[in-house]
Design a binder for these strands. Structure first.
Lengths: 183, 183
DNA sequence: ACGGGCATGTAAGGGGTTACATGATTCT
DNA sequence: AGAATCATGTAACCCCTTACATGCCCGT
């Protein structure tokens, strides 16, 4: 899967693995992410498969830059994958939900409430992130690269993030109330 | 992490790995899941660590039943873990969001809309599942095992599932409209 | 007759994380 | 003075999935 994410980013224009990582951290971070130690080897394989072409830019004091550009074959692989229908729902693993589910094993209701309040803080921060930083990132990207068409999709996924966080926060507030009253 | 999930289920009462798997499929399935091929080896290690005690019930035509019971040490390990605060937000990987984010690479808007409609079908089914099957499962479990206290937590996580699906569906509907209009 | 439930496991491989390695420049 | 940014990678390890292996009983 990472394969296609990388092709997807290369489709915006030629860039290095390091560049892709930075962009990922600012955009797909919350529904897709990867480390450099996974990105570099994956990119390396692309050349063999004819999905990309590489230009090496020598540098001093740093490793040489490897600028990857997507090929026709690469673009074809990407669009094929995008067109495939997704038949499985994503199987999230959420330790917080899991802990709450199993919290019958805890006698101390204050402990559970502390956990939930802590989560509220984290999710409120992330909601703010989607409402501020992400909006700014998208705007900046539109200005720099003239990508009105793409921006529709970026905004849609950003909006999902915002709505998701809002729902999570409401639910946490509801959970706090329920536990305070019923436990 | 699976370690604690298994301890959590064993805390409801002694049972086999097969039993745990069945219960998991009916309850935590959507925020935590595992295969039998992972559950069995993990349970096996517990005995060595003194977290469980095993009773072997001979059977014919089937492998002998191994009924695991949690020990004091096991319960302590479980409650310690439950009390630990979660500092990371769960990093979901959602291929649908990812594809939509990268859909600028597709010229054919109908393809994108088809994908979204397909997702709507899947999520509506799952919403119904949370509203029907899960409710029934919880009720059945309360009747069978006298677990009013635990049921508060089960209902809270079920409720999360319902709200999450509702939000996802609303967002998909919004995405469909946006693409129909703006693309 | 065939599929599903019961009940246990092993082995191979894929995907991902963590740790290690290098080294100049720029910001705080 | 120390951290962050730039820029690449390798190696060990862990978690998880997929495939394989066995075999009876029950329902349709």
């Amino acid at each position: 899967m990472l394969k296609y994410v990388l092709l997807g980013f290369l489709n915006y224009g030629p860039q290095t693995g390091y560049d892709i990582k930075k962009r990922m951290d600012k955009s797909t971070q919350f529904f897709w992410h990867a480390r450099l130690s996974q990105i570099y080897p994956t990119l390396k394989k692309f050349a063999e498969q004819g999905l990309t072409e590489v230009r090496v830019v020598p540098q001093e004091g740093k490793p040489d830059k490897k600028i990857y550009a997507i090929t026709k074959a690469g673009r074809a692989a990407l669009t094929d994958w995008l067109a495939e229908s997704e038949n499985e729902l994503p199987l999230t693993k959420d330790p917080v939900l899991l802990k709450l589910f199993l919290s019958g094993a805890l006698d101390d209701k204050e402990m559970i409430l502390r956990q939930l309040h802590h989560q509220l803080t984290l999710h409120r921060k992330r909601l703010a992130y989607f409402q501020e930083e992400t909006v700014a990132n998208i705007e900046q990207c539109i200005n720099q690269t003239d990508s009105a068409r793409e921006s529709i999709f970026w905004e849609l996924t950003r909006h999902y993030g915002e709505e998701h966080e809002r729902t999570y926060i409401h639910w946490l507030e509801h959970a706090v109330k329920t536990i305070e009253q019923k436990l």
